[in-house]
């Protein structure tokens, strides 16, 4: 049970980061990004290819976590510069924005597969089924059970992201510019803020968070190039449960989705039947459906002060 809790924490940290990325881009540009599926998968493959193939002598996957964030961030910026900026200037509707990211997702997905084919040919390894969990560092032994570093690292990354986002948004001039742009892009322009810089920054941060999520997941699950297609569903669910208009809500939503996915399925498998374990992908969907029907505005809209005052 203990190892499942640790895995659940690492997994849901990744989902929370990616969900925050989706929410950030949605809040600033109004684009609901399907491309986060591929951006997460690219983060996964950057860690894999650099730590296992390109720089095998270093051997420690954690060194390449920042690199995966940067590469996914740059891929994300490329989306903004080529497609999204053009569409935003022409005031495209929400569906067009969404569909354009879907098209880019298909292209990035194809490129990732080409990359995996190349790795398979060049290095004579199976790059279509990647296990990196064995490369993780053991930080402690607890009753014959090795505690790996990833739960700690993932939590640290989430806290670091939360603190720096909080600092960026509340303490810096640029953060205030971001908040103003979210509230009203036209008013922001009047007082001399360039919304395009805000959009660019949010695409970079959003993509980098997806890459980081992929990097964390490389230490948690077995990867295939199609891994993004599986992960995008809990990521979307986390973002929606978070309320789509609150960055911190999306972190909470990501954790709710990720933790419930692992914990509910483990409870079901232990107490009802082991055969139920294949239905794991259903859990985030059910949680999301229940949440939307009961509380359609999401966690972000929850008024904590009101509750505390009672």
């Amino acid at each position: 049970m203990f190892d499942i809790v640790l895995t659940a924490i690492s997994y849901s940290s990744a989902i929370a980061l990616a969900a925050a990325g989706i929410t950030l881009i949605y809040m600033t540009t109004g684009t609901f990004s399907f491309a986060h599926a591929s951006l997460t998968a690219w983060g996964f493959y950057v860690v894999f290819s650099f730590s296992k193939l390109f720089f095998r002598e270093i051997g420690n996957p954690y060194i390449f976590f920042p690199l995966s964030a940067i590469i996914s961030g740059l891929l994300s910026v490329a989306i903004y510069l080529t497609v999204n900026r053009w569409l935003l200037r022409r005031r495209a509707d929400m569906i067009t924005l969404m569909m354009s990211t879907l098209g880019i997702d298909l292209i990035y997905f194809a490129f990732l597969n080409v990359f995996a084919d190349y790795l398979t040919q060049e290095y004579k390894i199976n790059a279509r089924l990647v296990v990196l969990t064995t490369d993780d560092i053991t930080i402690a032994q607890m009753g014959g059970f090795a505690v790996r570093a990833i739960p700690l690292v993932s939590i640290t990354l989430v806290i670091f992201t939360l603190v720096s986002l909080h600092y960026l948004l509340n303490r810096t001039k640029f953060g205030i510019a971001i908040r103003v742009t979210i509230e009203s892009p036209s008013l922001a322009e009047i007082i001399g803020i360039n919304p395009e810089r805000v959009y660019l920054a949010s695409w970079f941060i959003g993509g980098a968070l997806a890459g980081l999520a992929g990097a964390i997941l490389s230490m948690v699950v077995t990867g295939t190039p199609a891994i993004g297609n599986l992960l995008i569903v809990p990521e979307f669910a986390g973002s929606i449960v978070g309320g789509l208009y609150s960055l911190f809500g999306s972190f909470a939503g990501g954790y709710l989705i990720g933790l419930s996915e692992y914990i509910i399925i483990t409870l079901l498998a232990t107490f009802i039947s082991r055969n139920l374990i294949v239905y794991q992908p259903l859990i985030p969907l059910l949680v999301m459906a229940v949440f939307l029907l009961v509380y359609p505005n999401g966690i972000g809209a929850f008024n904590w002060r009101k509750v505390l005052r009672r």
């Binding site: 569909m99 354009s100 194809a110």
Partner: peptide
Amino acid sequence: WLEYILIGLIIVLIAM
């Protein structure tokens, strides 16, 4: 993958 790239490109170009 060519199929994915082509269809992805068409979607993007149409949207733009």
